[in-house]
Simulated scan of single mutants.
Amino acid sequence: MNEVWFSGWRHVFKLDPDRDISDEALDQICTSGTDAIIVGGSSGVTFENTVDLMARIRRYAVDCALEVSSLEGAVPGFDGYFVPLVLNTSRAEWITGRQTEGLMEYGSFVPWEETAAQGYIILNADATAAKVTEAKTELTEAELIAHVRMADRLMRLPVIYLEYSGRFGDMQLVKRARSAVTHAQLFYGGGIDNPDKARLAAQAAHTVVVGNIIYSDLGAALSTVAAVKNA
């Protein structure tokens, strides 16, 4: 695995600029011991709500990265940037189209040393991201492994993100996906709402991303940090 700016991340919290979080909750998230905060969302992301959330997080020492899902939410000042490429969609705009548009407008300003492509494989049909991108979520194991190998070996992407968003995935399948990786870092996100699930995910993937539970049960979200670190 390449030694890049995100290579040491085991646990990550993901915050949505379009969702409210109190100063008290944000303080607990940023001082929890998590390795990083990723800012990003599938809808409702604007320059204003992204820069506001970034400014609040930047008061803390924790790494803070932006997942650039729209031109409207492209904000300078983050420690790093992820550019998602949705691999299991037939709509080219979500693979290279929007990314090319972004580079036409902002390519001269991209901090390339702190920018990484994410090969997204969305596996929950009910997720907003799946609906927006029209992702083919019902993949067989063979199809999933083929997508992973394409991202890892043909496209040489630094990050592969298995996104179940709102549903806990098949950890045996995630483990098999990780075993197919030769150099990419495998991120897993989806349905982690207690320490046991966090521990299982940490045993299956390189990096565990915890998101939705932050907004419904902060205590449960915070408990996932130690579970991942001790897995």
Rank of each mutant, 00 (worst) to 15 (best):
N2R: 15
V4D: 02
F6V: 10
S7E: 00
G8P: 05
W9Q: 13
R10L: 05
H11L: 04
H11E: 01
V12D: 06
K14Y: 05
L15K: 05
T34M: 06
D35N: 11
V39F: 08
V39Q: 04
V45P: 12
M54H: 14
A55V: 01
I57Q: 01
Y60V: 08
V62N: 10
D63A: 14
C64N: 10
V68F: 06
V75E: 05
V75F: 02
G77M: 11
G80N: 10
P84F: 08
N88G: 13
A92D: 09
G97D: 08
R98T: 00
T100Y: 14
G102W: 14
Y106A: 09
V110P: 01
V110G: 06
E114T: 10
L123H: 08
T128D: 07
T128P: 04
V132A: 12
K136D: 13
T140E: 13
E141W: 05
E143L: 01
L144Q: 04
A146S: 14
H147T: 00
R149A: 02
M150Q: 09
D152W: 01
R153T: 08
L157T: 06
L157C: 06
V159F: 07
I160E: 02
L162I: 04
E163I: 00
G166M: 07
L173A: 11
K175D: 05
R176W: 03
R178Y: 04
A180W: 02
V181W: 00
H183Y: 00
A184L: 01
G190S: 03
P195E: 04
K197E: 08
R199K: 15
L200K: 13
Q203D: 14
A205P: 13
V209A: 08
V210K: 08
I213H: 00
I214V: 15
L218M: 11
A227F: 06
A227H: 03
A231E: 12
